[in-house]
Amino acid sequence: MLTYTLRRVLLAIPTLLFISLVIFLLLELAPGDPVADMPLTIPPEVREKIRASLGLGEPVHIRYLLWLRAFFVTEPLHWIDGAFGTAFAEGQQRIISFQSRSPVFDIIAQRVPQTLWVVGMAYLVGVLIALPIGIISAYRQYSWFDQLGTLFSMIGFSVPTFFTGVLLIVIFSVQLGWFPSIYDTTLRITDWSSFLRQVNQMVLPVTVLALFNAAQISRFMRSAMLDNLTQDYVRTARAKGLKERTVVLVHVVRNSLIPVVTVIALGIPGIFGGAIITEQVFKVNGLGQLLIIAIQGNDIPMVMTLTFIFAVLIVLFNLIADILYGILDPRIRYD
């Protein structure tokens, strides 16, 4: 298991390097000049100096290596400095956003909590809805509950989140006025009433994302349960006189959860991508909205860093899912 983990981690490094190169070259190919929007009265030599100060004077491969160095060396060192009061990263160049001229990671750090609150909560709620639906659907296969569950997951899977989001806004905030349609990120939780306001504004975005996630996970749970319900060990458990409740909820569910847990882990990076749309619908100023603004503003360091962070998340959770599968299921042997 350890050698397998090590091998996978080692394999992840070239993968990530390659992905970063692909993203870098794609952004490099893109036409678009960060100084193009500046006033035409700026003389050409000053314009060149501005370009150089943005780090655009160097050739492509040098800039790529500088970016890699900044991402993998300077930024972690800077973080260590901030945490322990050391001075490793003193005077080293960090990744600077073209738009705001401040370090990219500082802006990202401001945006992460909003995304994590909304997206993380939505995923949690989605999983909590999905598991019981999957279990009951499988246990009562072809019953009306199962049929309804199938329809529900099909609809949840097919109706895009930007439509469910807008529809919920129309119903619950325009017509009924129960929930706000815009997520207020300046809200600080200080007392009970501000906490209630926070819960209130989270209801709609969380519902949208949770329904979408629950639709997929409940299907996986159902099919995993169906695979296990006909196994011999279930008959044995029943034969030795265990209560039906124990058989299903302890024996079958625990075994069925093995593949589902890995699916849940694999889905985590995907929801950050899906959150781009939901954040746009509810005007949450999280990572997704930051990416959209950066793309529209030609802010290449920001786009590069954010996209690469999404790629790191995907590779990381693929790794976690594979290792988790090996740990949870002793029958799986990778070596």
Binding site: T15, I19, L291, I292, L306, A311
Partner: peptide
């Protein structure tokens, strides 16, 4: 194929569409 599966697709699509629209 694995590399493509590890790419963050929606951000890349957005980048491709916005930057290559004009040319």
């Amino acid at each position: 194929t694995d590399l493509f599966l590890a790419l963050p697709l929606l951000p890349l699509l957005l980048v491709m569409v916005l930057f290559f629209r004009e040319p």
